[in-house]
Simulated assay, not measured.
Amino acid sequence: MTESKTFADLIEDLLPQTQCTKCGYPDCRAYAEAIARGEASYNQCPPGGAEGVARLAKLLGKPVIPLNPDNGVERPRPVAFIDENLCIGCTLCMQACPVDAIVGAPKQMHTMVAELCAGCDLCVPPCPVDCIAMIPVTGDKTGWDAWNQQQADAARARHDARRARLAAEREAAEARAAARRAAAAAAGGPASSSTSTAASSPTERATAAPAPVSDAEAKKRAIIQAALERARKKKEDNAAQGLGPKNTTNISAETQAKIDEVEARRRRLGIATDDSESTPTQNNGQPDKL
């Protein structure tokens, strides 16, 4: 028996599934649900373009209206390109990519799998060294002419798989933390349990004395710091040539939270950054001017 689809399901089926957040929502599903509830207009999806608005208007029984310029413009589909000479392996772009199109590891050069890139731009703002450029690959074709249903379905599948993987990783981490707390409580009684709980709080971790640094850890930090210094010099050279940063796209609150979390982790590790290496922050829901 075929499963009955909700109105939000039907709307989501008409979206390009780039998960770019330009509509103002964290992903295509959230936007579809907002349209179904009457909380969002059907002209807020730049990747779908004019044809996307027409498709949604037909489903909703409403007139075709122009794409809302506040959400962006219809354009040829771009693919992210990572400059290997500048990449420092910080993994911020990997964490921002909603369709797992970036391959890499901490402190190793990252690579974009062009066939999987949805052109969402979300990997660009987090990059602390501006090593990612969005390169148009569809000529004059824009909107749904630059994207097809097969690509949309594949992007949705990767996005859903990524969400499931992240949820499983969070659950596993919570289970490990609960097991450690239980083991500490069993070994030390109520006092130990209380101490463990207090020590695991963010405030306690932030104010606790730093642990001794081993020679290997010191060497690792020195390597990372040297990479940041090289990136800083490259950024200064680009600025001298009038080449400004490429980080010009909006950052969703969810993505910004992930960036902030990684930056906080880097600070706890003692990896120094200055303002030129810091990631963009939100001002009343808008990105900083660059």
Rank of each mutant, 00 (worst) to 15 (best):
M1F: 13
F7D: 07
E12G: 01
Q17H: 15
T18F: 08
T18E: 06
G24I: 07
P26E: 08
D27V: 01
A32G: 07
G38A: 02
E39M: 12
Q44V: 13
E51I: 10
A57L: 07
L59G: 02
V64W: 00
L67Y: 05
N71M: 09
E74V: 07
R75H: 11
C90V: 03
C93P: 02
A96Q: 06
C97K: 01
A105Y: 12
Q108H: 14
H110R: 01
M112W: 00
A118M: 11
P125V: 05
C127I: 01
P128R: 00
V129G: 00
C131W: 00
D140L: 07
N148T: 02
Q150M: 10
A155W: 09
A164Q: 14
A164D: 13
E169N: 09
R176M: 11
A178I: 00
G188H: 06
P190V: 15
S200N: 15
P202M: 08
A208N: 08
A208G: 03
E217D: 13
K219Y: 09
E236T: 11
G244Q: 14
T248I: 15
T249E: 14
S252E: 02
E261L: 15
A264M: 11
R266T: 07
R267C: 02
L269F: 05
S278K: 15
N284P: 01
Q286P: 03
